[in-house]
Amino acid sequence: MQDSRGRMVFTALIALILTVLPLPSWLNLVRPEFLVLTVLYWSIASPRTGGIGLAFFSGIMLDVFQGPVLGEHAMALSLVSYIALREHQKIRSKPAFQQSLIVFAALVTYEFVLFAIDGWTKHPVTSPLRWTHTLSGAIFWAPVAAVLAASGERRR
């Protein structure tokens, strides 16, 4: 197994920190969900080690920081990670642009799950701004994936 669990946890932690780093509000709106991208990357690149477990626990961490209900992000991340896991072979073979599109779809799914749970638990945030990060996430996918891949190279 080439991808160590430790590195995944480490990158996930960095991603979490990037997620809660305070930014000016306009920048904040276009901040991609780094943790989701990281989990997606590991689900695709190393479905055996990474995957749903990593997604679940990252989600719980995210919930502690920003969720109105514990378990919300865990649910959404597990789902997205599961989808990526199932299709990881297909996704890997796609060119970068198409990968970005797929990631975009995954992020929309993710946000929709959050949106739904927010509604069910009576903490609705209906602002359309909540969807902006899906776009920036798709744009950021390529660099994030490159960085994560490089992190693998160096340590090997």
Binding site: A55, I60, G71, A74, M75, T121
Partner: peptide
């Protein structure tokens, strides 16, 4: 498994 867990937690 995990989805059930999160639903229970929620």
């Amino acid at each position: 498994l995990y989805a059930t867990a999160s639903i229970i937690i929620m």
